[in-house]
Design a protein around this nucleic acid. Sequence first.
RNA 1: GCCGGGAUGGCGGAAUGGUAGACGCGGCGGACUUAAAAUCCGCUGUUAGAAAUAACGUGUGGGUUCGAGUCCCUCUCCCGGCACCA
Length: 817
Amino acid sequence: MRWNPNFIDAKWQNQWTIDGLNKVDDNDSKPKWYELTMYPYPSGDTHIGHWYAMAPADAHARFRRMQGYNVLHPMGFDAFGLPAENAAIKRGVHPRSWTMANIEKMRKQLKSMGTIYDWDREIICALPNYYKWNQWLFLKLYEAGLAYRSDAPAVWCPSCQTVLANEQVIEGQCERCGTPIVRRKLNQWFLGITEYADELLESSENLDWPDRIITMQKNWIGRNEGTEVSFDISHMGINEKDIKVFTTRPDTLYGVTFMVLAPEHPLLPLLTTKENKIAVTSYVEKAINRSDIERLSTDQEKSGVALGSYCINRINNEKIPIFTSDYVVSWYATGAVMGVPAHDQRDFEFATKFNIPIKQVISPEKSFSQTKELPEAFVGSGFLINSEQFNGEENTNAQQSITSFLSSAGWGKSTRTYRIRDWLISRQRYWGTPIPIIHCSNCGLVPVEEDKLPVLLPENAEFKPSGESPLARHEEFRNTECPSCSTPAYRETDTMDTFFDSSWYFLRYTSSQLDTASWDPEKVKKWLPVDQYTGGAEHAVMHLLYARFFIKALRDIGLLSIDEPFLRLFNQGHIIADGTKMSKSRGNVVNPDPYVEELGADVVRTYLMFVGPWEGGGEWNDSGINGIARWLNRIWELVTHDPKPNIETQKLPKVDELIQRRLHQTIRKVHNDLDSFKFNTAIAALMEFSNDLQEIRKTKNYDPKTWINTCKTFLIMLSPIAPHITEELWEILGEKNSIHKQLFPSWNDSIAEENQIPLIVQINGKMRDRIIVPSGIDEKEAEKTALESPNVQRHLEGNSINKIVYVQNKIINIVVS
RNA sequence: GCCGGGAUGGCGGAAUGGUAGACGCGGCGGACUUAAAAUCCGCUGUUAGAAAUAACGUGUGGGUUCGAGUCCCUCUCCCGGCACCA
């Protein structure tokens, strides 16, 4: 190393702090730019994956700042969550001390990256000055009817000993620990995200987000148009008079030969006959206790049991036997399915197994008379048969006519159903925000008064998981009195999902120190929405969807006036090691510190940006990192060594022109690449340019003034990527003001333009020669020059020219017979 | 099963329908050095050739085009998402 990176890193990080270079001024009159990167969970070690997420984001934010924006690029810690609790249980330390010690360590490591975070704005969600506002926002949502308690069947992770949101289930397994989940009926807190399903779907069209994320959110919301049909059970003598089903195929209504209720369906016990009770109860119990993976595996044989009762298909008055089966799930649509075995493969399999009649009602041909036995369900389109007045109708048509018939009869209606469920936010764990509600036997649910917030998380809880919240066993916390009637009452003891914290943290950055409100409305008005968000795609249907919902809900409550939190989104890839995600438990964490110590922060930053497109991520491999160290070394040499040009040569103006041309080409390329997160090619362009400068220096034919100015411009372009070495060299070149206060250079297309270009000569599309011609020559001239080429002549021998295709400044293709 | 994205040298990767392999790593050869490291110079897709050059070459097979890594169709494999969703 020709320069001492450790010395320079420390020198400038210190100097920038002293100068307040990265303080963000809310009153700055420059246009604002809010560039946000997802805040990390303080797991203890900043690994190379964190750098991969943060260093390029920092370079981009710096680039925006150099374009003249007032840039807010904050950092904080997603400090509540299970790992702290698990680590605490394992090691006997308190989650708070574990978390705070980790934050301490991570903050130091993040500072070593040389980022522009304004640490005065840091947020830590696990501190009362943050979670107080979680509680306050919860109460606002509660007042608005968007937070409610309900008995819906919840997803339960047997290992984490808590309920989860549907979004936290990946292929039937807990997102965090991979344990197969089960469903339990529990009384839990939900947020009404489904009320916003349509808006979430529709307004995503206007976001500058990757298509795949928008698609994932669309699929997750899963809006489906169909028909709700009610089947008559009034003969059963119970309160409910019908079973409602949702179907996308109302055209097959005459083909219904059975009804299936989900094992959790509320009507199930009421519709089970005495004779069938034992069989049904045992089936239901088994089904409910199975994990989703077992239960929803598509390759198992259909199972089920008859309830012994029937319902009436009102359209034709047929008696339809009722079954229960685990292929019908309670958490989608109405939890009941009309069985049309002739036209649905699942129903077909069920009917075959239980010897239920299969009645065909759609035929591929119009003149169809006789029902043959179907080998499998016919799911194609065709014409209705066995359907009374609708016979002969095209089935797509019949979907509408049957639906309107049902509507006018009051037996059904056209409707929509959604896959998305309301967001379950209760967690039976300790290390989270206490839900600020009091349960009173007289008054029911009573919100904690605002001036009593925060409801503090007690320090001395026994947090070993037991299936109920640790706070439930904390008498002092649990026992309180009702704010409204003053009788003894108890506190809600569940805590909030940590995605609650991250749904609004970006608002808090604008006024993180404020203790009289969740945020300063003026500042939020100034900074929001986030102009550019960067982070991993794994949050597509969790954090990103929740945050969008939050903003819309808070807008409707009157706390905000924006519709969307994040205007632009960029998903960077992930650095993996040994083929999987880096994690402490897997023991494959790559620590950046040794690299930083050996090579300096700039080398690590630059290398991470150079290895490939940012969205790609990839396997960690340090084989090329020395190449970056060598390059920065060469730059050090280039700038610090007196050029000593031979100013007497006559070629001087020409070389100057060449330098200028290459410089302007490079500015254009680097500007456009940084603008669109293409750091790898921006760095490649800077490398090419520095290689050119080295060649030029060897000639000694240039004006020293041009040389120095060119070096300075080059350093400015490199400074968002490698902030320390460029600042040092900037100082060495005699500059007094920080390089990071300079504007990004602009280019001039006419200076960048080449006057001599290589023209590719092809014969029948194969390259035969490249000739240097003046830029912009016309076809005739190009043709003449091309035909003069000996190699071209050789290939033309004995052939006649059919056609010549000329593309100016690119190619000339001679087509011969 | 459905919906996305992808497959380019030994490796990471680059290429508005117009020179495939920029840039970097690694490798080979050379200079400097007592030597090594560092640094510098040259070569480096495959095959043939001393070279000029030629043929071949972007997962498979076809197509459109003067011209295809790029556009269209087929298949294979890999990655991500969803999935007994009614």
